[in-house]
Amino acid sequence: MLDGETAAVLRAVLDEVCGGVPRSDTTKRTNVASGLLQAIREGRSSIDELRIAGQAALRTAPSMWR
Score class of each variant (00 low, 15 high):
residue 64 M to A: 12
residue 48 D to F: 14
residue 10 L to W: 09
residue 62 P to Q: 10
residue 2 L to N: 10
residue 51 R to S: 06
residue 26 T to Q: 15
residue 22 P to Q: 01
residue 7 A to E: 03
residue 48 D to E: 15
residue 11 R to C: 09
residue 46 S to F: 05
residue 16 E to D: 13
residue 39 A to H: 07
residue 37 L to I: 06
residue 12 A to V: 06
residue 39 A to K: 06
residue 27 T to E: 11
residue 26 T to C: 12
residue 22 P to D: 10
residue 18 C to G: 02
residue 54 G to I: 03
residue 46 S to P: 07
residue 54 G to A: 03
residue 42 E to M: 09
residue 23 R to G: 05
residue 49 E to H: 05
residue 39 A to W: 03
residue 5 E to Q: 10
residue 32 V to L: 12
residue 21 V to Q: 00
residue 34 S to P: 00
residue 62 P to M: 08
residue 29 R to L: 10
residue 51 R to P: 07
residue 27 T to D: 08
residue 26 T to W: 14
residue 53 A to T: 02
residue 31 N to P: 01
residue 13 V to S: 04
residue 33 A to S: 15
residue 50 L to C: 00
residue 60 T to P: 01
residue 7 A to T: 01
residue 57 A to N: 03
residue 7 A to P: 01
residue 3 D to K: 00
residue 55 Q to E: 15
residue 16 E to Y: 14
residue 33 A to W: 15
residue 63 S to D: 11
residue 40 I to A: 03
residue 3 D to H: 02
residue 48 D to M: 10
residue 17 V to Y: 01
residue 65 W to F: 01
residue 30 T to R: 15
residue 23 R to E: 08
residue 34 S to A: 08
residue 1 M to Q: 09
residue 10 L to K: 05
residue 46 S to L: 04
residue 23 R to I: 08
residue 13 V to P: 05
residue 31 N to H: 14
residue 6 T to A: 08
residue 13 V to N: 02
residue 28 K to W: 02
residue 16 E to Q: 13
residue 2 L to I: 13
residue 3 D to R: 01
residue 28 K to H: 08
residue 1 M to T: 08
residue 54 G to Y: 01
residue 2 L to H: 09
residue 42 E to N: 12
residue 24 S to A: 15
residue 11 R to M: 13
residue 44 R to V: 04
residue 17 V to I: 06
residue 62 P to S: 11
residue 19 G to L: 11
residue 46 S to K: 04
residue 38 Q to S: 12
residue 46 S to W: 04
residue 10 L to E: 05
residue 1 M to R: 12
residue 59 R to C: 04
residue 61 A to K: 10
residue 41 R to I: 02
residue 32 V to W: 05
residue 15 D to S: 14
residue 32 V to I: 08
residue 12 A to P: 02
residue 13 V to C: 06
residue 40 I to S: 02
residue 11 R to D: 15
residue 29 R to E: 13
residue 1 M to C: 12
residue 16 E to I: 09
residue 66 R to M: 00
residue 62 P to N: 09
residue 14 L to N: 03
residue 62 P to E: 11
residue 7 A to W: 00
residue 50 L to D: 00
residue 28 K to S: 15
residue 65 W to D: 01
residue 26 T to E: 15
residue 54 G to W: 00
residue 20 G to Q: 09
residue 25 D to V: 07
residue 49 E to T: 07
residue 15 D to K: 14
residue 33 A to F: 15
residue 62 P to L: 11
residue 62 P to G: 12
residue 24 S to G: 10
residue 31 N to K: 12
residue 20 G to E: 10
residue 55 Q to A: 15
residue 36 L to P: 06
residue 14 L to K: 07
residue 34 S to I: 01
residue 30 T to E: 10
residue 48 D to N: 15
residue 56 A to D: 12
residue 5 E to V: 09
residue 46 S to N: 05
residue 14 L to M: 07
residue 31 N to L: 03
residue 23 R to C: 05
residue 50 L to W: 00
residue 58 L to W: 08
residue 13 V to A: 03
residue 33 A to C: 14
residue 43 G to I: 00
residue 6 T to L: 14
residue 2 L to V: 13
residue 13 V to H: 03
residue 31 N to I: 01
residue 50 L to E: 00
residue 63 S to T: 09
residue 5 E to L: 06
residue 32 V to N: 07
residue 51 R to T: 04
residue 56 A to M: 11
residue 24 S to N: 11
